[in-house]
Write a protein that binds this DNA or RNA. Structure first.
Length: 407
RNA sequence: GCGGGUAUCGCCAAGUGGUUAAGGCCUCGGAUUGUGGUUCCGAUAUUCGUGGGUUCGACUCCCACUACCCGCCCCA
């Protein structure tokens, strides 16, 4: 067979499922505890939703969308899920419950990109979205939740980075001042930065080019940026967030260079990075998006959320061993073996029998690989109404009456 | 879209112009006709990503293509 999984997609094989279930279960427990409710939205949406929601200057919309036409309608495999959740929130009037509305989701996302370590074309995200609260306590709530989730997954060596991009008013001012600070050495910056200067100057700050970073140092860009003032409301929001994080004992690094590639973010943005991944080291990214609900046709609704890359999380979690089954029935009488297996399953045990009635040595060999215990059901057992149960870890073997095991 | 790397059994691999393409793991069978995890023995690639070319001869040299991996952009 020469058909392979498409570039950038991966099969999740049975031996990896324990890890995925662990992540999913931990997510559910963590988020439900904080009264976030799960939501599942379609995997494809109207292309328009993403163009308007994610923003048409972003790379996601410009070059990474899987779009297709059906009945003269343009649809797109979702590249992220915030826009979809907002759409559902509006479509079903979920804003009519008393705020906040809190959601979490888990599912596949699609972006047409060149795959590399930590990046696939189909990948999975776990995310939370919280609507209706303007106060920085909401920002703190979702960051706290992210940190708690990661902690429960047993992950450490992670760094929380935060920044504020300001609101629509002060961000404009911020951009202007940033451009002013950069313009003296603009012509020495890399090609990417040159094009970013007009398109989205904020992203210049995130450039990984060594020479650019040297220039930033040389011209003292960092201190110039931190000198740029947000408006009163935005800066007090940011201060308040830090106050909350400190009170919660959440360690964070302020990174004035932190910007995000999606257009909808306002005020708070944050990322959680791992020190144990390749160059795609962001495990979680998010922020506040106070304008998005309005952009998509709702009334002004403050909102904040984040998304995590499940494959990236999984890369940090050691392989969890697949659980063995409780019983493997060893027998040369398949009819009796099936009957016993069925009874065991009805009792709530996981059980299998040998389909080939090979010699006992081979059956035991198989049993030891896949089960914790073997039940030997041979001629003697059948004739005398008992079972031999063998613990495959300790090799301990006991005779037990048929009725006792089943009842 | 740009740059670099790799392609030999299900997996990990040695081979590097000359008869039958090492080895290990896994799987299956036997030693052990009712007892596994140790040990021993045996089986499993007419074939080296695909298509051309060079050569008496190519897995080994050349060309093209494809796939995958890594990095940039960007993002989870």
């Amino acid at each position: 067979m020469n058909i392979k999984a498409p570039k950038g997609t991966k099969d999740i094989l049975p031996n990896e499922m324990a890890n995925w279930h662990f992540i999913e279960k931990t997510a559910e427990e963590t988020f439900e505890k904080a009264n976030f409710k799960e939501i599942r939205t379609p995997i494809f949406e109207d292309t328009n939703l993403f163009e308007r929601g994610v923003g048409d200057t972003t790379d996601i919309v410009n070059k990474e969308m899987y779009s297709f036409e059906k009945s003269e309608r343009s649809l797109t495999l979702r590249p992220e899920n915030t826009a979809g959740v907002v759409r559902a929130y509006l479509e079903h009037n979920l804003y009519r419950e008393s705020p906040p509305s809190k959601f979490w989701y888990f599912g596949p996302m699609f972006r047409y990109e060149r795959p590399q370590a930590g990046r696939q074309r189909q990948f999975h995200q776990i995310g939370v979205e919280m609507f209706g609260i303007q106060d920085a306590s909401a920002d703190a709530e979702v960051i706290m939740l992210a940190v708690e989730f990661l902690k429960r997954l047993g992950l450490n060596d992670l760094t929380v980075e935060i920044n504020s991009l300001g609101c629509s008013v002060c961000r404009k001012e911020y951009k202007e001042q940033l451009k002013k600070a950069i313009s003296p050495f603009l012509n020495q910056l890399c090609e990417d930065c040159q094009s970013r200067f007009e398109k989205n100057p904020l992203r210049i700050l995130d450039c990984k080019n060594e020479n650019c970073n040297k220039l930033f140092e040389e011209y003292n860009l960092k201190s110039k940026i931190s000198g740029i003032k947000l408006c009163d409301e935005c800066s007090s929001h940011y201060e308040k967030l830090k106050l909350y994080l400190n009170a919660l004992n959440i360690k964070y690094v302020e990174n004035t260079f932190l910007v995000r590639g999606l257009d909808y973010y306002t005020k708070t943005v944050f990322e959680i990075k791992s020190n144990n991944l390749g160059s795609q080291n962001a495990v979680c990214g998010g922020g506040r998006y106070d304008g998005l609900v309005e952009t998509l046709g709702g009334v002004h609704t403050p909102a904040v959320g984040w998304a995590m890359g499940v494959e990236r999380l999984n890369a940090l979690i050691p392989l969890i061993e697949t659980k063995k089954i409780d019983y493997f029935v060893v027998s040369d009488n398949q009819l009796e073996a099936v009957k016993l297996t069925e009874k065991l399953r009805n009792k709530g045990f996981s059980a299998e029998f040998d389909y080939t009635s090979r010699k006992f040595a081979k059956q035991l060999e198989k049993a030891a690989k896949i089960a914790y215990k073997a039940i030997i059901l041979g001629e003697d057992e059948i004739n005398n109404g008992y079972l031999t149960v063998k613990d495959l870890q300790t090799s301990e073997q006991t005779k037990i009456s048929f009725d006792k095991l089943i009842n």
